[in-house]
Simulated scan of single mutants.
Amino acid sequence: MTQEHDAEEPLDPSAERTAIRKRAMDMLARREHAPAELAHKLAQRDHDREQVAEVLDELIDDGLLSAARYADAMVSSRAARGIGPVRIRAELAPVQIDDAEIERALADSETDWNALAEEVRAKRFGAAQPEDFPTKAKQMRFLQRRGFDMDMLNAAFDD
């Protein structure tokens, strides 16, 4: 007896639910995901949105899916790549991490943002401070694109 599955025939609800949970667990095993991001990825796989929502609620209740953990992981990985808090906030907003959670993750991070801005500037342009205004402006624009605010920029160029 073969267990071929016809693409047109929907899975029974418990099999669908099991498939959604397995796929979600596989994705979470690779890296943290925001709940909204995981819901979107699962919906792209033609899973029933209602069942996806139910499975994600179960994963959250089980502690396997967490917006807080995702925000912490994003802050940590982005800071390690030399990305500042302004850009990190902008990257977390589209995956529906709320502002309070973002601010908590940034505050809990042990990153010295001023020191990171200086480190990123020195890595890109060398340790010496810029000699003239056009050079300094170029370096400041670079740091702004990386997500550092004016206070951090000023700290990076403080002698």
Rank of each mutant, 00 (worst) to 15 (best):
11 L>N: 01
63 G>E: 01
11 L>T: 00
81 R>N: 08
107 A>Q: 13
109 S>E: 02
64 L>S: 12
55 V>W: 13
76 S>I: 00
151 D>G: 14
42 L>A: 12
8 E>C: 06
4 E>L: 14
94 P>F: 10
57 D>V: 04
141 R>N: 14
141 R>H: 11
24 A>I: 01
58 E>Q: 15
75 V>M: 04
114 N>T: 05
108 D>K: 09
55 V>K: 02
14 S>Y: 13
31 R>M: 08
123 K>M: 12
103 E>L: 06
30 R>P: 00
79 A>Y: 03
85 P>Q: 15
75 V>Y: 02
93 A>L: 08
134 P>S: 08
18 T>C: 12
59 L>M: 07
121 R>C: 03
127 A>Q: 13
132 D>K: 11
102 I>Y: 08
22 K>T: 11
1 M>F: 11
136 K>F: 09
57 D>N: 06
53 A>F: 00
63 G>M: 02
75 V>F: 03
25 M>A: 13
11 L>Y: 07
16 E>S: 09
154 N>L: 13
153 L>T: 05
3 Q>V: 09
34 A>D: 08
89 R>N: 02
138 K>R: 15
53 A>D: 10
105 A>E: 03
42 L>Q: 06
59 L>K: 06
138 K>Y: 12
39 A>P: 05
151 D>L: 14
23 R>C: 05
110 E>G: 13
8 E>N: 08
30 R>E: 10
74 M>E: 09
79 A>H: 10
98 D>N: 12
45 R>W: 05
136 K>L: 13
137 A>E: 14
107 A>C: 01
124 R>H: 13
20 I>R: 08
102 I>M: 07
3 Q>L: 14
44 Q>P: 00
116 L>V: 01
30 R>H: 05
151 D>V: 10
1 M>H: 08
15 A>C: 04
46 D>V: 02
1 M>A: 12
147 G>P: 00
18 T>F: 15
126 G>R: 06
24 A>L: 08
135 T>W: 06
54 E>N: 07
53 A>G: 13
126 G>N: 04
149 D>G: 09
84 G>H: 07
42 L>H: 07
72 D>K: 15
62 D>P: 01
